[in-house]
Structures are given as structure tokens and as C-alpha cells.
Design a protein around this nucleic acid. Structure first.
Lengths: 130, 130, 130, 130
DNA sequence: GTGGTCTAGACCACC
DNA sequence: GTGGTCTAGACCACG
């Protein structure tokens, strides 16, 4: 059940709790986690990812606050009803916002869109070439 | 002389000293500041931007460390020789890094590169179409 | 763990943050601090040396910038991988720089290289003869 | 009369007034300037070296304080009697002290004297090979 | 006047 | 708890 959340990187500047939350959202959006299904306990998840339980806890809390997860009394934390649609929306909005931000900055640096696209292609190939 | 550096935003998460440094780099790269020219004094710049002199000092120091600026003892800080080419390079490297960052995040959200590219194209058209 | 760093002298012209940085480099180069090992926290170190935390922070930041240390978010600062080799190199470069500096000064005093070498030999014998 | 003082370098970290003072001391020690002889006026010297008159003034003051120069009322600044012997002593003491300092530091960094000598020879050749 | 250093104390995000 | 940033104000060396 926890095989969705593997690539936690504690050195890339992105807060770990943010990475956890994002990957849960992704898993729900992509159908790997369905409404009503239980999410691993904070302790389990922390052990699995080799991170601090507080960090997992913070990720869960954040997702509960926005209605993606909900506590089921006496048994743990589950994916909320309607979470899938919401997660899809959250996921693309978050990424879009970041993309827009980078484009604005790049244009402010007087790069043309063609140059920007070249840089993007170059970066995509550089990292993990798919 | 100091009208290049206006938009300091103390609430956007980017450290102020970093914003100052970036804008100087940008000014040099675009030809607004030429090699040999003096940069506003630490105190002047601080007053101008309504920030603490130490913060300006840190920005200047960072740029000295990478050879963009150099102190002329007793008289101030000047743009170093060859700074323009270097600043251009730094600027595009900075953009590349941010692009790479977004790509990593998008992939962590389990988006394929094709989906990412579609979002990018969509954002490019949406914002200020060139 | 902090017994490596004792001789901070606030009156010898060498910036305190520089002294701290040098001693860490020295400790790593000599094997007193190994890659992966944590360095005392900023606050601890500051207390230990009776200096301001900001000063320690600056020393650490400088060493992070050159890849000797790296922050482990939320938990502290550690010696980076490959730091030992780098520190050895840095240490000898630092000495070289100081030697070059003395030579320049001696030449400015119109001493010939032969005279300089004689003085060096004399000083080497005079001090702690090996 | 002023042809002794040419190599002022405002970017090598050594205070300019210190360089001026040192070169006057050297000139006296080497016999280029004799007791009783007038030294160029502060203004002349400053113009000659393309530096700030205050800087020259500070160098002269320092040398007056230690008895190497003396003001001759109504006519300027002259080399004091007995300055030659004193300057010779000052010159070698100053250099010796710096050499000793570097040696101590190098030994503290666990370099052998042989290694130190190699570095010295390398530096001597590197700069202006004589 | 200039930059450089240091201190003190505050606030923040992260784990 | 950790490091990072920022502010305020002081002192120093240099020109």
C-alpha cells in the first residue's frame, strides 16, 4: 500500500512534508488510492520513508485541512469522498502556478519563449531521461 | 543611479539579499551597469530600498565572492571587469535551475513529460502572449 | 565533540568567522572530523567559543558555499562527502596565498629573493626547530 | 627623487599608506634617501602615486611618529638623522616577523619544513620570476 | 565618506 | 531542537 511514496529527497530544498503531501495527492489523483481507503499510520509511513513522524503528521494534517483526508475515529486516516477530483485539480493547479512563475521570471530576464523552451527541453533530457 | 532596483518584496519567500543580488546581476547582464562603474554605496542602497545595510552588504559580498563586484578600498564597490558575460551566464543558469526544479516537482506528481510540456505551452499562451 | 576549536583570538586582525572556518577545515583535513559527521550546532558552537551565533553561522555558511559542510534540514550541519580531500587542498592553498603575500611585501621592501630565502631559513631554524 | 615609489597596488589587501611607508623605509635603508634629504611634499607624492593625499599624509605621520622622518619648519619633511640604521632594522624585523608568522601557521597545518620550502620556491617563481 | 565585522535579539520554516 | 534571515546599532580600518 505504501509503494507509491518512494522518492523523498531531503536535500532538494522542497520541504519533506510537502513532498509527502504532494505524493499522496498524486496517488489519489492517479487512482492509486481511492476514496474510503485507509492511509498508512503516521508511524508506519514515517518508518517506510525513513523520516520523522512529525513530518508525516504535518503532511496528513495539511491534507485533512483541505479535505483530502479525514480521520476515521478509532481506526486511522482515510481518503475522503470526492478526493480524487479535488486532487486532480490541486495537482495541476500547483504545477501550473509554478510553471507560470518560472515563465514570468525567465521573461523578466529577457529570454524569448523559444529560448525558454530550449532550456526546458535541455533540462528534461539532462535529469532522468525518460 | 539607483533607479534599477525597485521591486523588493519581503514576503515572497525569496531572501531579500538574494533579490538585491539578482537585480544587480540582471542590471549588469542587460547593460544597465557597466564594468568599472560604481554601485550605490551600501548605505545609499539600503536607504533606497528601505532595508537594513547589512542585508545590502550581504548581497554585495555574495557578488564579490563570485567575481561580479569588487570593492575599491575606501571608496566603494564597483562592477568587475568581465562581469557582463558572467552575469549573463549566471542569469541563464539561475533560470535553468528553477526550470529543473519545477520539472522535478512535476515528475514527483507523476506527470509525464508530455503532460508537463502541454502545461508549459498552455501557460506560455495564457500569460503575456508574445 | 567541540574540543577541536579552542583558540579564537578576537584581537589579531583575522575575522572571527574566518578563524572558525579555518579551524573546521583544519580539523577535517587532519581527520578530526569525518564526512557525514555532525558539526556542533550554531548555538552550541557560539556558546562554546563565547561568540555570537551569527558569527558561527557565517563561518558555516562560507563552508557550505564551498562544499565542505552541508545542512541537514531540521537537524543540523554535517561534513560533506569528499570534504577531506577538499579541505587539504584548501589548507595548502591558504598557506600558499599567505606565502605569496609575504613575498610580495618583502620584494616591495626591495629585498632580493636570496635575501628573503636567507631570512626564511633563519626563521625556520630559530623557532621550533624540527 | 620620487622614482623609488612606483609599485602601489590598491587591490592587494595591503593598506596603501602601509605600502608608502614601507617603500620610504626601504629607500632609506638602501641608501636611496639620505638623512637630511627632503621627502616630496604630501601633495606631490600623492600626485606622483595617484593616490589620496590623506593616505600619503598618514604614511608620513606614521614615519614621523617612529622617528624616521621629521618636519623641518617652513620647508617640509626630511629624513631624520640616524634613520638609515633604524630603517634597516625596521625593514628586516617587519619581514622576519611576517615570515615567522607564516611558518608557524604552516607548521600548525602539519606541513613539514621541506613542504613549506617547496611552496615558497613555487610562489617565488610564479609571481614575477626574477 | 566608504566597506567590513561583530553583537544582540527577533522571527521564520523545518523536523 | 535545528539553521536561515533580517534588523538595529556599534566599532574599526581605509582614503
Amino acid at each position: 500500500m505504501a509503494q507509491f511514496f518512494f522518492d523523498i529527497n531531503t536535500n532538494n530544498g522542497v520541504p519533506v512534508y510537502e513532498q509527502v503531501a504532494r505524493q499522496i495527492v498524486s496517488a489519489i489523483a492517479s487512482g492509486g488510492l481511492d476514496a474510503g481507503q485507509m492511509v498508512p499510520s503516521v508511524r508506519e509511513m514515517a518508518k517506510e520513508l525513513a523520516i520523522n513522524p512529525n513530518t508525516v503528521s504535518r503532511a496528513y494534517r495539511q491534507l485533512q485541512d483541505c479535505g483530502v483526508l479525514e480521520t476515521v475515529r478509532g481506526s486511522g486516516v482515510a481518503v475522503a469522498k470526492g478526493a480524487k477530483a479535488q486532487c486532480k485539480k490541486m495537482r495541476s493547479q500547483a504545477i501550473s502556478a509554478r510553471i507560470a512563475h518560472v515563465i514570468v521570471e525567465a521573461r523578466q530576464s529577457q529570454l524569448t519563449d523559444d529560448e525558454i523552451l530550449k532550456m526546458i527541453n535541455s533540462e528534461m533530457r539532462k535529469k532522468h531521461p525518460q
